[in-house]
């Protein structure tokens, strides 16, 4: 089941005008920001399908930038996001792509600063709900129907066990888990879907442990 909670249907509380093109876009931007772990210096945003055709009218650009500034869907500062990004020195470029994607509301974000880069693909599936389909070249199958924890970490022994034990302490059950890496000992990615909601406290706790680089929560 794609939609799991009644609050996926009656909700979210958000700044208008579009749940898929504004709230969903803000959520994708925020996941990108959280995984990057800090404010990026430059962001290149490639829009596909309906996103590419109507982003200006729906405030998709404004909402994505709002998310990149770490604003939630109901944060009224979203309306001023373009100005606020300029003030904080975040340069954002939008590119309209013609390429056909599986879902009409798809966006690829490339975040950069002097040290780090992050590449992420998000899909806004409707009603403010989002899915993340790609992260730094890793194809990830996040159904979007369960709460999820994304952890970017150094590929070292004990990393998976650390995160799993933190979840256990908080009585959160893992329903699906994937671990992927490009090269042994380099950066790896844990994608963990859970039965219960993952609190920000869990994310903070994970991030404080050794070898953890970035953590983001998907509700």
């Amino acid at each position: 089941m794609k939609y799991r909670s009644v609050f996926d249907i009656i909700g979210p509380v958000m700044i208008g005008p579009s749940s898929s093109h504004t709230a969903g876009a803000a959520r994708i931007g925020r996941v990108a920001r959280q995984l990057f772990g800090k404010a990026p210096k430059t962001v290149t945003i490639r829009l596909y399908g309906s996103f590419a055709k109507t982003y200006k009218g729906h405030g998709t650009d404004v909402a994505l930038i709002g998310g990149l500034l770490d604003f939630d869907t109901f944060d009224e500062r979203i309306v001023q996001a373009v100005r606020l990004a300029e003030e904080t020195g975040m340069a954002v470029e939008f590119i309209e792509e013609d390429e056909h994607t599986d879902h009409p509301n798809t966006v690829r974000l490339h975040l950069k600063d002097n040290e780090d880069e992050l590449d992420i693909v998000g899909v806004s599936v409707g009603g403010g709900k989002i899915e993340i389909t790609e992260l730094n070249g890793f194809e990830i199958s996040l159904s979007g129907s369960h709460p999820a924890l994304l952890v970017v970490h150094q590929d070292r022994y004990g990393a998976v066990a650390t995160v799993a034990s933190i979840l256990a302490e908080h009585e959160v059950n893992i329903s699906h888990m994937e671990v992927s890496r490009k090269l042994k000992g380099q950066v790896a990615l844990m994608v963990i879907e859970t039965d219960q909601e993952v609190s920000q406290a869990i994310a903070t706790d994970c991030l404080a442990r050794p070898n953890m680089l970035n953590v983001a929560v998907l509700a």
Binding site: I9, I10, G11, P12, V13, M14, I15, G16, P17, S18, S19, S20, T22, A23, G59, F74, E76, I78, V79, G126, G127, G128
Partner: peptide
């Protein structure tokens, strides 16, 4: 209110709120 970028609750979406 939604069109004016005000605060609403999506039911099920903002355009149909």
């Amino acid at each position: 209110v939604n069109a004016a970028m005000g605060t609403i609750c999506a039911t099920p979406t903002a355009g149909s709120a």
